[in-house]
Amino acid sequence: MDTENTINSPLNIELRRVSNYLGYSGRAVIIFGLWDAAKTVIQFILDPETFLQYFDGGTEIARKLAVAFIVFIVMVLLTVGLCIRFFIGIRAISEGQGKMKSPVYLVVTGLFLIVNTAFMIMDFISVRVGHSEPDSLLISVLIEITSDFALGMILYSACRLRFLNRRA
């Protein structure tokens, strides 16, 4: 009996497990993306005056223009970030359902993860130089980790799925 290809062979079970992880991770990335966007709106968009502390001097009009420019940049970055997460999430869900396979979204996921990790390191540095409080940092890091866990899960699941499919 060909046990390797039976419906409940260890290989097929592992394939189903990893596909399931990929699908759920994709959904989680989308939800975390929406949540991150909401948090950014609360923190940055509604009180752009926060940025004024970085601008000393200059006329009132110049300061307002600078603030408007920063708000615009943040909005663009927010939209781009959200689109990237949706792209990653939808591709992951699709691959988890066995519909589509694309290496592009994995590269994007990896880059996104690296960028997020870089921001986390910057948070550590800002504490060292006294710009942030340690307790704020801890919360910020924990939030980043929960968000990046889904991205990491996508990378792991997708790579494992490809490896297993090659064996099958």
Binding site: R27, F32, I139
Partner: peptide, 16 residues
């Protein structure tokens, strides 16, 4: 794993 993700999302919300 959906239970894990649900917990993580609420953890994120609570920490925030």
């Amino acid at each position: 794993i959906e239970v894990l993700f649900k917990g993580l999302i609420f953890l994120d919300a609570g920490l925030f």
